[in-house]
């Protein structure tokens, strides 16, 4: 019963979204649904935070392996929530200095800003930067010109890697740039041709395929044929 009602709800709001794309007078309906959707998305962040807290507290109370790290996560999470909600160190809005919480939560110098600037930013960006090392190691170990397909992949990577930096310009600078019959052979131009022609064609075909796939799966949800997102009925 509950699953049927939920599937009907999904169909109704989905069809409203489809209808409003074609009937402008009904735009207000779509706007209302999307507005609720956006608020719900914000509540999902609260759910995410609460879930993180729950999982880590369970780990701490069970003294599971690595519970000390969970304690760090929970402490930092609670500190962030505390200073963020109370806007610690952020001054009120100059137009309303009598309302303590009227200021910018991310004001430079505030505690919330400090956590963003000096904890979240450096760690997340370094985590992303780590991949530069691993991609180098993987290229050394795994990039082998074993067959035609691998040669094409490798050759393209070479041209793009060299053509996008100044070394590519230097390597093929002997090819006259003003002669259109041969200038395309310069690495920087070859890189452009790969992106504009071959990559363009490959990505476009994937895009068309994916669009058809998404349209089909969306349609199944809209007509209630696909209910897998609701989980099993057990």
């Amino acid at each position: 019963m509950g699953r049927n009602a939920a599937a009907v709800l999904a169909s109704i709001v989905g069809l409203v979204m489809v209808l409003t794309a074609f009937a402008r007078p009904l735009e207000f309906l779509g706007t209302a649904v999307v507005d609720w959707f956006n608020v719900l998305a914000a509540i999902a962040f609260v759910l995410g935070g609460a879930n993180l807290l729950k999982m880590n507290l369970l780990k701490i109370s069970a003294r599971d392996a690595g519970w000390g790290y969970s304690a760090v996560t929970v402490s930092v999470f609670l500190i962030t929530i505390g200073v963020g909600l109370l806007k610690v160190g952020a001054h009120p809005d100059p137009l309303h200095p009598d309302v303590a919480l009227s200021g910018d939560k991310e004001a430079v110098g505030g505690a919330f800003w400090w956590l963003y600037e000096y904890a979240m930013s450096p760690i997340t960006s370094t985590l992303f930067a780590l991949l530069a090392f691993y991609v180098a190691s993987a290229a050394f170990r795994a990039f082998r010109a074993k067959n035609t397909a691998a040669i094409l992949l490798l050759g393209t990577a070479f041209v793009v890697l060299l053509g996008r930096v100044y070394v590519g310009v230097l390597l093929t600078s002997w090819i006259p740039a003003d002669n259109a019959w041969v200038s395309w052979l310069r690495l920087e131009n070859l890189s452009g041709i790969i992106m504009g022609v071959f990559n363009n064609a490959g990505t476009r075909a994937m895009m068309i395929g994916i669009a058809i796939g998404i349209a089909a799966t969306s349609l199944k949800i809209l007509v209630g044929l696909d209910r897998s997102y609701l989980g099993s009925s057990d």
């Binding site: 290229a139 170990r141 990039f143 010109a145 490798l154 990577a157 996008r164 930096v165 070394v167």
Partner: peptide
Amino acid sequence: MAPQLFGHSLMVGLILVGN
């Protein structure tokens, strides 16, 4: 773009040596 140049060159070198 200067670190890019050396990083890309290293990548090309590594792939060549690997092959």
